[in-house]
C-alpha cells in the first residue's frame, strides 16, 4: 500500500547563509495492507520528516513515495488533496482547527468531505467521542479551549472517523491516561483488522510492541545525527 524508495531530503535555509542540511538519504520502506510499522531512531533521525514527506507536507528532494497508484513526488496539489481526502489519514501531534467550530463538527468533517450524509457522519463522530471519553457536555464547544489530553483525543477521533486505507500516526498515545491509551490501541488494532496500512511513531515502547508488526530504524538513513 505504501512504498518508499531511495528517498532523500535536504533543507536549504536561504536566510541563514544558504546552509544546506541533509536529513535523509536513500530511505526505503514498504507497508502492506493490514500491517503496522513503527519508525524508530533517536531524536533527529528523521522520523517526523519522513512522516511529513509521506503526507505530502514536505517536499522530497529525490526518490519516490507511492501510496496506492499515486507517486507523491511530483504529484499535483489536487492529486495530493484527493489522496488525503480518500486514502491517507494523518493523526498529528497537534490539533489545528478553525476557531469556533464545535468538536462534533471537527470530528465529523473528514466524513462530510467524502460525501457521507450529515446524520451518519454525526453518529460516527458521537460514537468515537464517547469511546474516547470526551464528556458529552463538551461536544458542542470548540476544542481550542480544551486541555492538551482532550485535544489529543479529539484529534484521534477525527483521524479515525473515516476508514482510510492508509494511516500515519505521530505519537498517538502520548499524553494519554491508561484508559484512553487502551482505547487508542484498540482503534489501531481495528484499523489493521479492516486492512489499513499504518506507519506510526511511538515513543511508548509497550504500545509499540503491542500494535506494531515491524520496526524500521531510520538511523541508517540519517545523515547528520546518526553519523
Amino acid at each position: 500500500m505504501i512504498t518508499v524508495e531511495n528517498l532523500s531530503k535536504s533543507f536549504t535555509l536561504h536566510n541563514q547563509g544558504s546552509a544546506v542540511i541533509d536529513v535523509m538519504r536513500g530511505a526505503n520502506l514498504s507497508v502492506a495492507a493490514g500491517e503496522c510499522v513503527a519508525l524508530t531512531g533517536q531524536s533527529g533521525a528523521g522520523k517526523s520528516t519522513l512522516m511529513r514527506m509521506i503526507y505530502g507536507n514536505y517536499f522530497a528532494s529525490s526518490g519516490s513515495i507511492r501510496i496506492g497508484d499515486l507517486d507523491l513526488v511530483g504529484a499535483e496539489p489536487r492529486q495530493i488533496l484527493a489522496l488525503r481526502r480518500d486514502t491517507l489519514g494523518y493523526v498529528s501531534q497537534f490539533l489545528r482547527v478553525v476557531p469556533r467550530v464545535a468538536t462534533l463538527e471537527v470530528v465529523a468533517e473528514p466524513l462530510l468531505a467524502v460525501g457521507q450524509d450529515r446524520e451518519a457522519a454525526r453518529a460516527r463522530a458521537e460514537e468515537l467521542l464517547r469511546r474516547l471519553n470526551i464528556p458529552q457536555t463538551l461536544w458542542s464547544l470548540s476544542p481550542t479551549t480544551f486541555s492538551g489530553g482532550e485535544q489529543q483525543r479529539v484529534n484521534i477521533a477525527r483521524g479515525f472517523a473515516y476508514d482510510y486505507p492508509a494511516m500515519l500516526l505521530d505519537e498517538p498515545t502520548a499524553s494519554l491516561d491508561p484508559v484512553n491509551r487502551e482505547v487508542v490501541l484498540s482503534l489501531i488494532k481495528e484499523a489493521k483488522a479492516r486492512g489499513a496500512a499504518i506507519i506510526g511513531i511511538f515513543h511508548d515502547a509497550e504500545a509499540r510492541s503491542e500494535v506494531c508488526d515491524r520496526e524500521i530504524d531510520l538511523s541508517g538513513f540519517g545523515v547528520g545525527a546518526a553519523a
Binding site: F11, T12, L13, H14, N15, R52, G56, N57, Y58, F59, P77, I80, L81
Partner: peptide, 22 residues
C-alpha cells in the same frame, strides 16, 4: 512559488517564502 498550502508554509523552497513564513 506554488503548491499545497501546508507544503508551502511548512517546507518553503524559495528564499522570499522562507523569509515570509519565518
Amino acid at each position: 512559488e506554488t503548491g499545497l498550502t501546508d507544503q508551502v508554509l511548512d517546507d518553503p523552497q524559495e528564499p522570499y517564502t522562507q523569509l515570509l513564513v519565518s
